[in-house]
């Protein structure tokens, strides 16, 4: 996809999801260890752990699949 030189839009998407996922996941682990005084509804489901983990995994996959190195290789192959 030639839509951003050596950095693909999908790399930025992966970066964004990965960093946010990592922060949310880490906060979820922290909350599981030190439960807050004010809990959200359905706190027991620990949504921040599994949702943060899901975003982290998707983000890492996208960041690696569309990493600048791979994008440069793809662009070189097309030329």
């Amino acid at each position: 996809m030639k839509s951003g030189g050596s950095l693909s839009i999908w790399f930025f998407v992966g970066l964004c999801l990965g960093v946010n996922g990592a922060l949310i996941f880490a906060r979820g682990i922290y909350e599981a260890m030190y439960p807050p005084a004010e809990k959200v509804v359905l706190y027991a489901l620990h949504a921040n752990i599994w949702w943060g983990g899901f975003l982290l995994v998707v983000g890492v996959i996208y960041s690696l699949k569309f990493s600048p190195a791979r994008e440069r290789a793809r662009n070189a192959a097309k030329q």
């Binding site: 946010n20 922060l23 809990k39």
Partner: peptide
């Protein structure tokens, strides 16, 4: 959002 999302998830929703 405030009902279900604690710290982190709330920031993501607001973002």
């Amino acid at each position: 959002l405030a009902r279900y999302c604690g710290p982190g998830l709330l920031g993501l929703g607001i973002t």
